[in-house]
Design a protein around this nucleic acid. Structure first.
Lengths: 249, 249
DNA sequence: CGAGTACTTGAGTCCGTTCAATCCCAGTGG
DNA sequence: CCACTGGGATTGAACGGACTCAAGTACTCG
């Protein structure tokens, strides 16, 4: 029953993300402020809905561990997955700024989240311009990713789209340290791949089989092993953005 | 030849957007700061590329008049239109924050733009938290729109998609005062509609014809007249976001 | 060992594609 | 004044990619 509990939070100074060199370190003053902004932690079971469309969530979250995904649905149940979230990503910003959430977020694996009070976000802008800028950085990058997804769903063929998605998740996962080059495993179901690519489940399965036959991926243990990321990016006519030290809150 | 010239700028206090009640007024201090942040104006002919993908634009812009659109292309020329821009919208933020543009922006009609120096954006965050918050508001709203577009391209049928696009542009246009209920004219070509919906030109034409036969729209003078916006939103299973007083820079 | 979920595969259909031709209209230049 | 050009819109025909329907396998879990 206790699928979701607020645990005794770790101090921000010892945040698991701060030990990851992919992330830009905070100044001492920033860490202190973020500590005061943080109101707890949240653990989620796989499959749990963290944020529901239409609600007026009082919280903002940063992912500390695990995978999740953002999605929208049509009234008849058709679902579109918009993007995946990984450690360092922030969710709930739309709810905090635009007053209501227009998408949902589900946990894909078990997740641990850092919880912030949305009402205090304006004071963050007033007191810590650097952190405010970082939030805008995160929002811009999310927009940039959505642009790429839209190009993919709108203009790539099914095979290219699947290759793009696997390559994209591989590269993002690498940078968030949730996949490694040795073990490039993406915890997805084919239903989710279908709902991300805008394809039917059956056709997704046949498309993934083609990628498997080409030895670019292997489907295994309810997930996807990426075997040749370079071949996938080439097939998708895509290039990952250069890795830069990224901010987080 | 002079398709693009920096004209003598109007003062921000007399900004054409400030006379539009849809926009949140600035405080006197904000107006003063924005005035100092503004570096000129830019006039664009229809068809002109305002920002090109891959470049490192030194500017940020706010649309003062006219329509434009953001898009990305694949190396073989396939194009996806991501969103349309109208008065009050800001473009070039990604270039300012993430260092390089990953999409282009073209003028659809003649446009007048307000030009800002991107190098000074951080000082904006330091000195005017309210304005910084507004920029983040705009970024969040853009993300929200992209979410909707992605749902549309991924999961709606061709007819629903076309209905959604026309309804969407109608509602956004109303709020930016570039369409009126009496004269609901959208300045689009069918090629652009096709590249927005992720469809071929031929099928787009046939789909629009269906909407015309249903008397929901009328294609006229190289553009689209919206006749029954409510019927379009219903057909698309979509609902426009409630109108709120929105910020601009 | 039955039930549920994820994955797989085949068959037939249909939505959206490409190819191709035509029309309309606004420029433009002989 | 009219032929020529080119972009945009329109339409028909045929193809094919992606869809739905349907069955079956494999695995986990109570």
């Amino acid at each position: 029953m206790d699928s979701c509990v607020t645990t005794s939070p770790t101090k921000c100074a010892n945040c698991i993300l701060s030990s990851n060199s992919a992330f830009k370190p905070h100044s001492e003053g920033e860490t202190k402020f973020i500590s005061s902004f943080k109101s707890g932690e949240l653990n989620c079971e796989p499959g749990m809905t963290v944020i529901a469309e239409g609600t007026h969530s009082p919280h903002l979250y940063t992912i500390l561990e695990g995978w999740g995904f953002r999605y929208k649905t049509l009234e008849d149940g058709r679902r579109q997955i918009l993007n995946y979230v990984m450690p360092g990503d922030m969710i709930g910003l739309q709810g905090a700024i635009l007053e209501h959430m227009d998408h949902s977020v589900d946990a894909l694996t078990a997740m641990r989240l850092c919880v912030f009070e949305r009402t205090r976000i304006f004071s963050l802008f007033e007191k810590h311009a650097g952190v405010a800028y970082d939030i805008t950085w995160l929002a811009s990058r999310e927009e940039s990713i959505l642009d790429s997804h839209l190009l993919s769903v709108g203009r790539r063929t099914a095979l290219e789209r699947a290759a793009y998605l696997m390559a994209f998740l591989y590269h993002r996962g690498l940078r968030a340290s949730v996949v490694s080059e040795r073990r490039a495993y993406l915890p997805l179901t084919q239903i989710m791949v279908a709902d991300t690519l805008g394809l039917s489940l059956v056709h997704t399965n046949k498309t993934l089989k083609k990628l498997s036959d080409m030895k670019l991926i292997r489907w295994k243990d309810r997930g996807c092993e990426v075997l040749k990321p370079e071949a996938l990016t080439e097939l998708a006519k895509w290039e990952p953005a250069p890795a830069v030290e990224r901010p987080y809150i």
